[in-house]
Amino acid sequence: MLIHPVEVEWDSSLGIDDAFESIKTRKRSSERRNFIRGALELSGLLMKYEIDLDAEDYVLNKLMRELNDAINIFNDEYHQAFQDVSKVKSTDIRFRAYNPSEIHINEHTEDADAYAINHARRKADRIFELTLTNRFFKQEHAKGLDPMTINTEIAAMGSVEGIVKIVTERAKSLVMELRDKYESQINGLSENAQHDIAAKLFKNGISRDVSLVKPIKDFFDGDANKKYSKHVLNSSKDHLAPIKLLPIENDIVDNELKHGAIAWYRNPGNGNNHTLSIMYQTSDGMKAMHPDFIFFEKVNNKIMPYLLLDLIEFT
């Protein structure tokens, strides 16, 4: 909580708007990648924000085509998996559940083959996503197959690694295709909408290179012991920005401004859309590093952003 907040706003007079928005930041979580779910959710968001109202059908049709082709390619493995699922002996499994609010124990029985098939079907739903397996179910049901047979087919295709790999690769290519095709439209959405899309991809472990979002307004600490010139966010009254910096950080900013930097940006470390994040690999997986500053300079009459690489620490 700032005791004496000072409102600052973006200073277009510095002339670095285009250079700032040219900066790309990669967003990816450490979650396991799920390209099938990512493709389906991205297509849904393209419909939600009226970028492509046919995106969901397009993705589903492409994935269904790939799924059917993969089953044909791995036909032997698929039929073997079908037989393996079907061979469960049809004995009864008894489930017992004690209800502490009652004296007796509730019991029910279920055919072992039905239980095994339903369990394998649920596993396939997690692999291919329910939207896709339901579409496959409708396709097979239209051929006159009974539900048990169709569920066995779905269970079988989920257990064949080659089928899963082919469909996953197709989903990956669809994510890249839609992301590249509609990049400009996505970047033109509101900040909340862009965050919604980035969050869905992030949740599925899919990276996305996004333009750094230009902050329009913010509040800085009026109790900071120094006000700085040429910060991209500053007070409209004196064009200065009150920012608390460590002594070494203060020296860095002063030195860069004295040696030709025409503007600078204190990169926030909270990972929001105004933060430049650089992903790097560690023994614990991918992590994000946020450089402290972004500076801007004029190179051959073109304004360019730059970082001080010797300041970047990977911890």
Rank of each mutant, 00 (worst) to 15 (best):
F295R: 04
Y49D: 00
T282G: 11
H104C: 10
N187F: 12
I243M: 05
I197T: 01
G158I: 03
T25K: 10
N267R: 02
N270P: 04
E50G: 00
K123H: 13
K214E: 03
M286I: 15
A156G: 03
G162Q: 10
V8W: 02
T109H: 05
E140Q: 12
I262V: 14
K62G: 00
F82L: 11
K172D: 09
K227D: 02
P268W: 00
N300K: 11
D146C: 08
N151D: 15
G285R: 09
N255A: 13
P100W: 06
L233M: 06
L311T: 12
D284N: 14
H104M: 08
K200D: 10
I16M: 04
I93Q: 11
I248D: 13
E191R: 15
E161D: 14
N255C: 08
M176R: 01
D92V: 11
D254T: 05
F296K: 12
I197F: 04
Y115E: 13
N151V: 01
N204H: 15
E56Q: 06
Q80N: 15
I294A: 02
E140L: 12
E249D: 15
D209W: 08
H108I: 15
T133P: 10
I294Y: 06
E21L: 08
F74I: 12
D57P: 03
F296C: 05
F314D: 01
H108A: 15
P305R: 04
K214R: 15
I71N: 03
S184W: 13
E129C: 09
D52P: 00
D292N: 08
K165H: 07
N61K: 11
